[in-house]
Write a protein that binds this DNA or RNA. Structure first.
Lengths: 333, 333
DNA sequence: CTGTTAGCGCCTTCAA
DNA sequence: TTGAAGGCGCTAACAG
């Protein structure tokens, strides 16, 4: 037989009070006489009573769990965000349902729907782009949403990011300042606004400021992976580039290693600046100069923003921009 | 006002059938005449009805969500496991509530309790050790549990691992075979059975087979981090060791880099074999020879095992051991 | 193949 | 400060 689950009703009977009273002490409602509270608490302890959160969720319409849609937890960038999210969630007594989407539109929609079916109180979305369909679901649902490390061109939902455009501009300028005339721009899909709009524009602005003509041939659309970086070497060298700004660390280290392994000296003959300042940049030899992003904080602040939204608090600004930096390492002169 | 949530009752009314019938089509019960099924489906579509999973959970006593307790998602090793877990969970229509514990006993207990309060159908636990308290909760609860990449000395719950002892023995033997007389053993806390029992025993066995006397001075208890690896260099060199087997990749690369940076040639003057074959081992220069563990699979198989447990299927063997390997890279001769 | 009827365990007015 | 009663939205026998 199933172990008899003990309910609020059992506690009420044993303590000789009503369910309502038990409910009150369980939920910390102050309107209970200390004496009865104590009595109830004792019975709860004796019976080892555990409130059923599902029943509570049904009755109260709050589940204290939020959905987190992430492209891939095993990617260091997103994993850092996720850690920040969970820590703040825990702090505010929420749990997170984590779901990997691989950045795939269909999966995102599916996952979002099951999350909403499970009545999550809020959703944090990470992804390289937002399809119309996903945005449609967001706006038709009453559930608050925050984008973490992801751009929303329309700015309809909350979001937390750094200024990718400025950061990329700074990185490009730094490379130009050290004498590079041809700086390659390497990113993931340019269809993603974070690359095709924010970062690419920052890159172009730097060129313009330095009177350098933009060339399509120096733009490389790739994959956020170490392998993709390894594979990029020849194309990059053939383009005549003597430096590169890249949107991903694994990608950058891949490029760096294949360059080094084939005899190209970094930074003497080729310089690299990457974007995420993950552990990879520090481990590589030479280590990689990088834009620094407060990844953990982006996650943490996103979750904090979401708690406010769920709480229907007034929000000054739904689109939060966090500061970035640039840390110089061995891959630049 | 809140957007009026539409329920199974609304659909029943509009389709002129009973709630039971609607429930049947929603749940794919075959006992419904195709015509009525079609009719109901149309109404569902027209009303944009979404079943409420919380209510379903309360009524059916199944939430189709499992709890995953993880020390730290931003650690590459655990993140890989987590990805395997989520993929298989999705495959079987489950979602995962992910909770970071930092390997802290208190947090583990807390998290486990809220997970159980939320009526998860099962739990996957990852952690370096299992406290008595946690094991107590496991056994007193009816909820199935599987340990992923974690040892249970008592073997009371399901688990999926590799044979850490044999793997470490092989690695140590390889180092001895290439001429090293003094091989350092570097791991996390020796209080964790995976280190203090499995791995250390494998290391000792290798020594014994080669008539080498075990020395406490060659055992280094450290932290699973890059920094800890960097900090270990002097102590390791002072011990007279000419090689090391290590239990963690970040740790290993830290040691490797601080060795290289201070002029010690790897592998000529010092050899290293690490344990997890993460991307770090491939990115490092020289790259690091490693035991290969099917991390993703450990996660995936754990979740698969859990589905069987939740389904009350007969299990041949609750403790699954997956194969490991050894991949030679630049850190060994 | 379909409908009726009880709950699942808890919260939340509304009275007392 | 406490209790009674009515749901929350859905599933699960059990009839028919």
């Amino acid at each position: 037989m199933e172990k008899q689950t003990i309910t609020i009703y059992d506690v009420a009977r044993e303590a000789a009070v009503s369910m309502a009273t038990v409910s009150r002490v369980v939920n910390g409602n102050p309107n209970v006489k200390p004496a009865t509270r104590k009595k109830v608490l004792e019975v709860i302890d004796r019976l080892d009573y555990r409130p059923n959160a599902v029943a509570r969720g049904l009755a109260s319409k709050r589940t204290t769990t939020v959905g987190v849609i992430i492209p891939d937890v095993s990617n260091a960038y997103f994993a850092s965000l996720a850690r920040g999210i969970d820590d703040v969630a825990t702090m505010y007594k929420y749990n997170i349902i984590l779901a990997n989407s691989d950045g795939d539109d269909k999966k995102e929609i599916n996952v979002l729907n099951t999350l909403l079916a499970k009545q999550v109180d809020g959703v944090i979305f990470m992804g390289h782009h937002l399809t119309e369909e996903v945005r449609g679901e967001f706006s038709r649902s009453k559930t608050p949403v925050v984008l973490a490390g992801s751009i929303d061109p329309d700015n309809q939902v909350g979001s937390v990011n750094i200024d990718y455009r400025e950061a990329m501009k700074d990185a490009t300028n730094a490379l130009i300042a050290s004498g590079n005339k041809k700086v390659a721009f390497i990113s993931g899909s340019l269809l993603d606004p974070i690359n095709g709009v924010s970062r690419l524009n920052g890159y172009k602005e730097a060129l313009t400021e330095n009177n350098i003509t933009f060339t399509e041939g120096l733009v490389f659309e790739s994959d956020y992976s170490y392998k993709a970086g390894l594979a990029l070497k020849d194309r990059v060298l053939n383009s005549g580039a003597t430096a590169a700004v890249a949107a991903d660390d694994e990608l950058s280290v891949g490029l760096l290693n294949s360059l080094t392994d084939s005899g190209v000296k970094v930074p003497d003959n080729f310089e690299i600046i990457t974007s995420n300042n993950s552990l990879y940049t520090d481990m590589a030899r030479p280590s990689v100069t990088s834009i620094t992003q407060p990844l953990y904080d982006i996650g943490a602040v996103s979750m904090r923003l979401l708690t406010k939204l769920m709480n229907k608090e007034d929000i000054e600004e739904k689109s939060i921009i966090l500061p970035y930096g640039l840390v110089k390492r061995g891959s630049t002169k």
